[in-house]
Amino acid sequence: MSVPRYWRNEVPRYRLMGRKCVACGARYFPAQPVCTCGGTEFEDIKLVEAGEVVTWTVIRSPPLGYEKYAPYVVALVELDDGMRLLSQVVDVDPADVKAGMRVEAVFRKVREDGPSGIIMYGYKFRPMVE
């Protein structure tokens, strides 16, 4: 992945920042240029960093760039504010993932552009640490 592509998504990925349509209140993560209501004015919103697993899978044949992390869990997570996103779930044995499992956002390494390229970080989720 090129550096500009990575760089311009840092803030949403690092801090789970989404956007809310000023006209109708619809919330987006990631941001969209135009709302389904036609609105083009948005304000930034911070997503809640806790939620639960809706459904999940275990990636055993990963795409290029993700080989060294396999097998890993990817889940559809519903945040406590109702927003949904896809994310890896880490610090868990794949066999222990359950629907409804409480999870929280963490900041982790996602991939690297080889040993000499940039390190790409982003959000993942892990079982909630009480």
Binding site: K68, V90, D91, V106, R108, K109, V110, Y121, K124
Partner: peptide, 16 residues
Amino acid sequence: VALDEDTVTISVECAK
């Protein structure tokens, strides 16, 4: 560390 952790991710965890 986990496979996806380094000094930066540990630092962010502590900082948050």
